[in-house]
Write a protein that binds this DNA or RNA. Structure first.
Length: 420
DNA sequence: TCTGGGGTCCTAGGACCC
DNA sequence: TCTGGGGTCCTAGGACCC
């Protein structure tokens, strides 16, 4: 038996923790560059505003209905997420976090469904009380069915945030009311194929043969079919080590200044390298990219893949490689709208094969990197780095972050003040 | 004018091996 | 003119997730 714990309207709920005045107000959180709506309060969902719509398309509606909007604040959401995961960990030996706002927990220690539901209710109450974020829990034998149960828990007040699918009767009832395109693992393409084949509900799909599922949707579809029929077969990657690490941003305006682009990219290099070192890995490849707006014709792109002679986690090495590559391919008078770096070919940092004839002093590099990391961890983010940073004034021109809330829970300067 | 960011897994097809 | 059979590995691109 598993339970899925899913936070309701997560980013919006995080903002409301520190802004209780917004509890019954329509609120949205926007993606980077204040581009798209990525989280909506229930009030906003009821207005018919869809996930992912560009904000400019609903700006008028936002004014009309008094919708409050926030730029995204991942420092805050990440911190609240890890606090929630800590609580969840107390209730299980096996926690599988699958995104910033949801995690599966193994409840096989519960003797029956009633016991599992009681645990789920306790979890919900504890997270509500100590963090202030509402969550929903779905209990079932497979992860795909947990998703369905969680949806019911979220959307019908009668469940009080906890729903279980444990009997065959419950399974059939739940799936018969569940649209096929809402099933976890069925995306737009698969849904279109299924509709064409006359399948509109999850139950209709589950009642077809496995061969039907695998012929139409290959292995992933067959796995979804099995899960809907109660066979647990989707293992969640529980390894926290990432196979790729990305940092990319869309800029508020096209960037034509090479120095500014280099500064932005060097910050991205520092970020991904930090992440890489935190998971104690090294990488052998890095991709650097920059392109003009994908909505304009005559799109200009730079995609460069760099290979390191030996796997590395060193910020300086990555930054230098990035600069060399960019200077070769950068075009003047081109408004680069988006840029980023991706680390690839990631492997554990231990036992890296060294080069016999190396032009870098790796030990010295590592010492320097450690010293810099130590200073930065004591004095704040990137006090020392390898390039001049984008200064505050430039940063506000580079990125739209006007409506960003403070990092209430992670920065001492942003801590909340109470007037008693 | 304005349209995000960070991931994973699967598959087909090409390159290569003997 | 005729041109096998059986593999593995890598990569790009598609589909999906939140």
């Amino acid at each position: 038996m598993y339970a899925l714990c899913d936070c309701n309207n997560f980013f919006v709920s995080c903002e409301r923790v520190f802004r209780p005045d917004l509890r019954d107000k329509p609120v949205v959180v926007l993606s980077g560059n204040d581009g798209c709506v990525v989280a909506r309060s229930n009030e906003v969902k009821r207005l018919g505003i869809k996930m992912g719509v560009p904000f400019y398309q609903i700006r008028q509606m936002a004014e009309q209905y008094g919708i409050v909007h926030f730029s995204s604040n991942f420092e805050l959401y990440g911190d609240i997420s890890s606090r929630i995961m800590t609580i969840l960990g107390k209730y299980t030996d096996e926690l599988q976090q699958c995104s910033v706002d949801e995690a599966y927990i193994d409840l096989s220690y519960c003797t029956d469904t009633e016991a599992a539901k009681a645990v789920a209710a306790r979890i919900k109450a504890e997270i509500q009380k100590s963090i202030g974020v509402p969550v929903s829990l779905g209990i079932a034998a497979t992860k795909t069915l947990c998703k369905v149960a969680t949806d019911y828990a979220k959307h019908y007040a009668g469940y009080k945030g906890v729903c279980s699918i444990s009997t065959e009767e419950q399974r059939r009832k739940a799936l018969s009311d569940y649209a096929i395109e809402d099933v976890w693992g069925i995306g737009r393409q698969s849904a279109a194929k299924l509709h064409k084949a006359g399948v509109t509900t999850a139950l209709e799909f589950a009642d077809h043969t496995e061969l039907f599922a695998s012929n139409l949707l290959n292995l992933p579809g067959a796995n979804t079919w099995r899960e809907l029929n109660g066979h647990d077969c989707i293992a969640l990657g529980d390894s926290p080590e990432k196979a790729s690490i990305t940092c990319s941003r869309t800029f508020a305006h096209g960037v034509t200044d090479r120095t500014l682009l280099e500064q932005a990219l060097s910050e991205f290099c520092a970020k991904v390298a930090e992440k890489l070192r935190r998971q104690q890995s090294v990488c052998q490849e890095m991709m650097v990219f920059a392109d003009t707006s994908r909505f304009l014709e005559n799109r200009q792109t730079i995609y460069i893949t760099l290979h390191f002679p030996i796997p590395t986690d060193n910020t300086q090495e990555m930054t230098l490689a990035m600069l060399r590559a960019l200077r070769q391919r950068w075009q003047p008078n081109t408004p680069y709208k988006r840029a980023g770096v991706v680390l690839l070919s990631i492997s554990p940092g231990k036992g890296v094969q060294q080069l016999l004839f190396d032009d870098r002093d790796r030990q010295r590099d590592t010492q320097l990197q450690k010293t810099i990391d130590r200073i930065n961890s004591r004095t704040g983010k990137r006090t020392i780095g390898f390039m001049p940073q984008v200064d505050v004034k430039k940063a506000s021109e580079l990125y739209s972050i006007g409506a960003k809330s403070p990092a209430y829970s992670t920065r001492i300067s942003d801590i909340i003040t109470l007037h008693c």
